[in-house]
Structure formats: C-alpha cells, structure tokens
C-alpha cells in the first residue's frame, strides 16, 4: 500500500522487527488501513496516542484480528493489559506466549 505522501520526513531508521513482529505489524496495518509501512513501525513505540495514534476503536479491531489470526483472546480485566498494548513488541510477545499452536 502506498500513498501520495513522500516519506521524506520519516527520520529514524526503524529498529529491526522480529519475524513475528513483522507479521503482527502487517496484520495491524491491514485491518486498520494505516498509512504506514509495516516495516516502519518502531517495535518499542507506543501503539496508542502519540505513537501510532490508535484509539479504542482500533483496540477492538486489533483484538478481533488477533483472536481470528492467533486464537489469542485479549481481555481488559487483565492487570497487564495496558502493558500488553504498550507497543508492537509487547503485544507480539504476549501473543507468542499465549497462542494456540
């Protein structure tokens, strides 16, 4: 997916994503129609607000896609929830430890 936007102002060279993080990044970009290349998502950057600028509607969409793709059910009564959603890396790590194989 490309847009008319030149990427000239994207400064930082993103840290390398692990293969499972790249898969998750692709999933998120695709279900949310984000204007960012999956490879460009910084693994440690916040997903919500300042980072990718996601909101609670996106959280629902991500929960749904994660459930379908990885069979991992996200719940908000989980005390660690805000940490799970903190970054691509933390979400991916959570999925990897809980996914049905």
């Amino acid at each position: 997916m490309t847009s008319g936007a030149p990427a000239s102002e994207t400064i930082a060279a993103p840290a390398a994503l692990l293969p499972q993080e790249l898969d998750l990044a692709r999933l998120i970009v695709s279900v949310l129609s984000l204007e960012v290349a999956p490879e460009e998502i910084a693994p440690e950057a916040p997903l919500f607000n300042q980072g990718l600028g996601l909101d609670s509607i996106d959280a629902l969409e991500i929960a749904l896609a994660v459930s379908k793709t990885y069979d991992v059910k996200l719940r908000s009564d989980d005390e660690r929830n805000h940490r799970i959603f903190a970054s691509l890396r933390s979400l991916s790590a959570y999925i990897e430890t809980h996914r049905a194989r």
Partner: peptide, 12 residues
C-alpha cells in the same frame, strides 16, 4: 461493574 470492553470481557 467489571471490565466489559473487549469481546471476551463482555461474553465472560
């Protein structure tokens, strides 16, 4: 009164 945001919260 508990969590009821994600689908599985609500179903639980």
């Amino acid at each position: 009164a508990g969590a009821s945001f994600f689908p599985n919260d609500v179903l639980d």
